[in-house]
Amino acid sequence: MTKPETKGGGARWALFAPALLFAPCAFVYAVFFIWPQASLLAISATDAAGLTLAHYQRFAGDSYYWEILGRTLGLGAAVTAITLVLGVPTAYLLARVQSRWAGFLLLLTTFPLLVSAVVRSFGWMVLFFRDGLLSHGLMALGFADKPVQTMYTMAGVIIALAQVLLPLMILTLHGVFKSIDRDLEYAAMSLGARPIVALGLVTLRLASGGIVAGSLLVFSLAISAFATPSLVGGARANVMATAIYEQAIELLDWPFAAALATILLVTVLALSLAYGALLEGRGEREAAR
């Protein structure tokens, strides 16, 4: 579509204006993101003697840390799956409902975001301990025959993180669904598609970009979350973020903490690219067919 502009002062300006508009954002990124990340990388790959891979080798050779990485990614996957399963229908309904309450309901779903992680975690404590509501509820309903402790477990962390990240998933998907013309579904139905087929072939297919975006957002926030795993997960649910904190703050081993942080960052980037390519790629093929 875009053809090279004919040469001239105005055209040149038109070419540079976007770069100029982008500059402040790029600057902030460079100073507050790229630079710290680069220095992190530098710390992780040096010791008193100079360049070294020792900190990475320490990670690679220790099954304990692989376990933590695996647990972290598992946490991200579980939280993403839960928020998708709960978020897609909710966001869809909120986007489609023709009610003056829709806006209010959407606002209501964002309330967990307004409460700090620490306060929220104390709330979960009351629910999750052996003598708490969840345990009593499960026993009263006959799902458990003895008290269940969800506090200080991975399950607790997953539930708590899914709860706080669900609004982000809903908000992302709500915007996406809102932008998809409802007549597309009606068109599919009038052409003989059952409602569920119309939803899948048209709406969800068109929302896939937003679903990818929402999933990546939730996934990366889940695996980098610190407060909730630390407060709800306690000592046993160690994830990368708490391990990094422990190395940096408790043990003052900054190089190894930096190595852990770098490994987490690289893993997230790789997974994001792969996940994005997977879903986008499917779309490209479909359109080309």
Partner: peptide, 17 residues
Amino acid sequence: TIFKAASDLPTLFGQGD
């Protein structure tokens, strides 16, 4: 039960049994 911070004490004795 293993905990990390003193802030958990009241709930440990309260709901934590």
